[in-house]
Each structure stands twice: as structure tokens, then as C-alpha cells.
């Protein structure tokens, strides 16, 4: 029956609703109960107050502290944690904390990577990552992002990358890198750049990431990116780390500091290396990868900091 077919087609088309509108409409239903009694400026004010309070405690990126500072935090804490910090002390000398504002992983990655380039002056690595960044830009274009919504963030990251290479007019010192990482107008832009890159990579390889995302949040890939990757302040999980590591071709080591221990009673610090997968590179090149971790992050449930090897 012709009419039924028409209806089926219409149904099909209804499904392809503008996602922004969909998110907006859904939340308008859900949030009415919780938020109807607050005005939007009140919500904003509270939001800003919380941020200001956090800012007071710690800059986006803190100073380098000896590992003993970490031990001091757990003086009267779990013996397993104390034991693990001792073990960490065998290979690591220092820690650099980041603010716990939901962007800590990206902030760690930004500082640790730029610091690595500043210290190594590795021109080949800079060229390699630039090519990957270019690829990420194409990914976003292919996914239908309007260029003006992400180009500023890309430009700002590339600018920082140029700056940490010495010998240019725009070159910066280690102190300046730290200052910039604490400056919201640089730091947040770079974090947002990483969020775009991560979102693009997750969506480009939706099939690969889908089972992980389903296990994590029971969301579709699309929704996950809109709700947990692109908005600032959304915490990162292993999906984010895998995607960012793959997209930029940068290996990341994460040390896990939690209260887990073996049955035998012996304590060891678990770690995981996020090594970029090379088989799925969009342009088919297999050499665009640094397999050795260029940074080590310390994970405590809900938060990332940077660790420095001895």
C-alpha cells in the first residue's frame, strides 16, 4: 500500500533529527523538575562560584613536588596505598598535580607533552604530530563540523607547539610554558582542542569504540561524544585516553594508585600503556607513531596527575 510506504519513509526521516535539537528537547523534559526553581543566572553563578573555589586551591597545573608530598597525603591512610607510594618512589621522583575540574587528564597531557617537546627539541616528533593534527582536522570536516567551531582551538595548540621549539622569535621558556598552562585563555583552548580530537577519533572509529562506550555508559557513540567528550569539565575515561593516544599517535603510561592488592598479600603498582594502534591510521601510514610512552600519569580514582621518572 503506497500510503504505508510513505508513512514508513516519514518515520525513517523523523529519526534523522538534528542531534542538537534532540539533546535540547530531551533535557528540557528531564530537567524541568530539578531546575525549574532556579534561574539560569543563578545556575551560572553557582557554577562560577564552584570554579572560583577550586581555582583558589590549585592552579590548572601545579608546581613540581617531590614524591614525598604524595606520601604525606596518605600518612594516616590505607597501608596498601602507603606501600604502593613507596614502590612508586623507586622509579619516580616527583609529581605535578593538576586541578580536579574534570579536565585533568587533558591538562596533564597538554603540559606533559609540551614539556617533553620543550626538553627534547625533537623536530621529527613535532612534524609527526603536526601531520596527525592535520588528519584530525580532516576527520572533523568529514564528520560535518563547521570549520569555524574548531579552527581556533587547533590554531592555538599548533601555536604552543611552535613556541616550545627553541630558536624562533616566539619561543618560550619552561616558566612561560607553565604560565600559559595556568592561563585560562590558553589552557582551556588547548583542552578543548584535545576534546575535539578525541571526539573526532571516537566518532570516526565508532564501531571500534561502541562496545566500550556501551559498557561504560549505555549511550550511543554520538551521545557519548556530545555528553561526555565535547563539553568542558567532563571527566576522561579509558575511551578518551585510547582515542586521544591513537589520534595523535602518542603513547601514554598510566600508573594506578588504588587499594587493590593481590591475594598473596604482595603489593605492586599496576600500570597500563596506551600504545597507539597503527593499523587503523586514516591515511594508511604506519610510521606516524611514537611507541615509547612520552609521559607517565598517576591515576587515583577520579583524577590524573603527572609523574616524573628518576
Amino acid at each position: 500500500m503506497g500510503n504505508n510506504e510513505k508513512v514508513a519513509v516519514a518515520e525513517e526521516e523523523k529519526k534523522s533529527v538534528n542531534e542538537v535539537v534532540e539533546v535540547a528537547i530531551e533535557t528540557s523534559y528531564v530537567d524541568n523538575d530539578d531546575w525549574a526553581t532556579y534561574r539560569d543566572d543563578e545556575v551560572m553563578q553557582q557554577h562560577n562560584a564552584i570554579q572560583a573555589e577550586e581555582a583558589h586551591k590549585l592552579p590548572f597545573v601545579g608546581d613540581k613536588e617531590p614524591l614525598s608530598a604524595l606520601a604525606a597525603e596518605y600518612q594516616s591512610g590505607s597501608p596498601i596505598i602507603q606501600e604502593k607510594i613507596k614502590l612508586l618512589g623507586q622509579s619516580f621522583s616527583a609529581i605535578r598535580r593538576t586541578r580536579g575540574d574534570g579536565n585533568c587528564f587533558f591538562r596533564c597531557f597538554m603540559f606533559a607533552y609540551l614539556e617533553h617537546i620543550l626538553e627534547s627539541q625533537d623536530k621529527a616528533e613535532v612534524d609527526r604530530i603536526k601531520a596527525n593534527v592535520e588528519q584530525c582536522k580532516k576527520t572533523l570536516q568529514n564528520l560535518g563540523y563547521a570549520e569555524f567551531t574548531f579552527e581556533d582551538f587547533f590554531a592555538l595548540f599548533l601555536e604552543q607547539l611552535e613556541s616550545v621549539m627553541q630558536g624562533n622569535e616566539t619561543s618560550i621558556s619552561h616558566d612561560e610554558l607553565l604560565t600559559r598552562s595556568r592561563d585560562q585563555s590558553v589552557s582551556d583552548y588547548v583542552v578543548m582542542f584535545f576534546r575535539f580530537v578525541t571526539s573526532g577519533e571516537v566518532r570516526r572509529r565508532a564501531e571500534f569504540f561502541e562496545p566500550f562506550i556501551l559498557g561504560l555508559s549505555n549511550m550511543t557513540v554520538e551521545k557519548f561524544c556530545k555528553a561526555s567528550v565535547e563539553p568542558m569539565g567532563e571527566e576522561s575515561d579509558h575511551v578518551h585516553i585510547t582515542a586521544l593516544s591513537d589520534a595523535l599517535g602518542v603513547a601514554i603510561r598510566v600508573m594506578y594508585l588504588d587499594r587493590s592488592s593481590c591475594d598473596t598479600g604482595s603489593v605492586s603498582v599496576n600500570h597500563h600503556d596506551f600504545v597507539p594502534s597503527i593499523s587503523d591510521s586514516p591515511n594508511g601510514t604506519t610510521n606516524a607513531v611514537a611507541a615509547k610512552p612520552v609521559m607517565t600519569l598517576l591515576y587515583r580514582p577520579g583524577h590524573y596527575d603527572i609523574l616524573y621518572s628518576k
Binding site: 535540547a24 533535557t27 531546575w35 551560572m44 563540523y145 567551531t149 565535547e230
Partner: peptide, 29 residues
């Protein structure tokens, strides 16, 4: 001020990849 989750009524839902254009389209909808 209009209470749309795309506008600042729910600041946590806003994302930098949206724009004035996106917001106007949502407003019409």
C-alpha cells in the same frame, strides 16, 4: 532570558562546537 538547554539555562549542556546559528535553529524548533 529564555530557558533552553542550548542557551545558558543549563550551562553544563552547552558545548563550544555549537554556535549562534545552532542556537537559533534550536530556538525555532
Amino acid at each position: 532570558k529564555i530557558c533552553l538547554s542550548i542557551s545558558n539555562y543549563h550551562p553544563e549542556h552547552w558545548q563550544p562546537s555549537w554556535s549562534v546559528r545552532t542556537a537559533l535553529v534550536a530556538l525555532i524548533a
